[in-house]
Write a protein that binds this DNA or RNA. Structure first.
Lengths: 206, 206
DNA sequence: GACTATCTGTAGCGATCGCTACAGATTGGA
DNA sequence: TCCAATCTGTAGCGATCGCTACAGATAGTC
């Protein structure tokens, strides 16, 4: 077999393979031997290219957010109203979480739920990402209340938590085998609770 | 130290201790040494009294459903309308998932999310329990549609999945640090999407 | 009070974990 | 063409995993 010289494997393809394994089995449920088998490299190559398991996972999560999870960042960047933003977040989750081309659900939600004390840092890392998203959504909702898009008595914290909970629940349901069609129905039901200014035409509801 | 004779430890107290550890760290994230430390027994006593780690976990889950998770079974047993049932499931989750007297969230939802291939059976065991609950709720909703409690065009599958997703999302949010007050707000928002017969007085909405 | 049965504590089993030392193989530069 | 540098594969490190053999200690029986 070919040994040495410049790197012989595709770093991004290896990251993609690692992503799918972490997505399916979570951080602690994935072993180095599983990773090296999926990435088609040997342990020393993995450690030379990515550092250690922890650093590889962080790189995987960052890449995930820029690829599979991109619809979230895009929604935050492109939607100017809280109503449009929430609609796109929820329906995007419904659309993507049960696609057959990758493991079900959201990697950031599902990949570090069970963690031994030794892996607590990884749980915290993902929880921080989830909570940052929720806080960002809350601030966008607060903006919408100030601008008059949403009623003045709207509970920004509660509403943001509700939206994030629905998305996380859809991720779990996708993991439990629910298909895209049902997730879409869930998303539409979730959006019916959205507060609308009585005299406003800002709502997206059909 | 005292050795031997009849069993010297309280079996149920040991189960309770094991419950809290599994609840916090999940199945694969909990080691035998953690369990024996929390249960204040040594490995041979654990294996003599409970079989192995897997059997202990199953016993823990059954006991959990009869204690901490009892509000779910009670709601199914005591509520006669789908509306009342769903109200009690969601508000019960909101009330209990962030209590400070035990780990946050629901053990059945959180304890086997990350699993290596060797622990796949445990994931399936909990997924089956979750899906059985969802299917039971769906059948109760279908009954309510037939009886006229809910509109005839109600999507029983979608609605049951929505309710279960909200509950699972609340569990995740509790794990991420959200308090009871916010969970209550989430539950009330979730119930606003409940379909009501226009001419009926069956709704519980405030 | 010896005997049997049962439980407990110590110690350690084989397997796997994340990770790495080492040497063989191949490349680019001199 | 030979060297220095770099990557790869083999093999195995110490630690921990789930689990158990073994022997010491206590209880009930006669």
């Amino acid at each position: 077999m070919a040994r040495s010289g410049p790197r012989t494997f595709d770093r991004d393809a290896a990251l993609e393979a690692a992503t799918l394994v972490f997505w399916e089995h979570g951080y602690s449920g994935t072993s180095i031997s599983q990773l090296t088998a999926a990435m088609k490299i040997n342990p020393p190559s993995l450690y030379a290219a990515f550092g250690d398991k922890r650093a590889l996972f962080t790189e995987v999560v960052n890449r995930y957010n820029a690829t599979y999870g991109r619809f979230m960042a895009d929604a935050f960047a492109e939607e100017t109203t809280a109503t449009g933003l929430v609609h796109r977040l929820i329906m995007g989750a419904a659309e993507h979480y049960a696609e057959g081309s990758h493991p079900p659900g959201c990697l950031v939600i599902a990949a570090a739920a069970n963690n031994s004390p030794g892996n607590a840092e990884v749980s915290i890392e993902l929880a921080d990402r989830r909570n940052a998203n929720r806080d960002l959504l809350q601030s966008r909702i607060a903006d919408a209340i100030r601008s008059g898009e949403l009623p003045a008595d709207t509970d920004a914290r509660g509403l943001a938590t509700y939206v994030v909970a629905v998305i996380q629940g859809m991720s779990q349901q996708a993991r439990d085998g629910v298909n895209t069609e049902t997730l879409m129905a869930v998303g539409e039901m979730a959006l019916r609770t959205w507060p609308v200014q009585p005299m406003s035409a800002a709502g997206r509801r059909g």
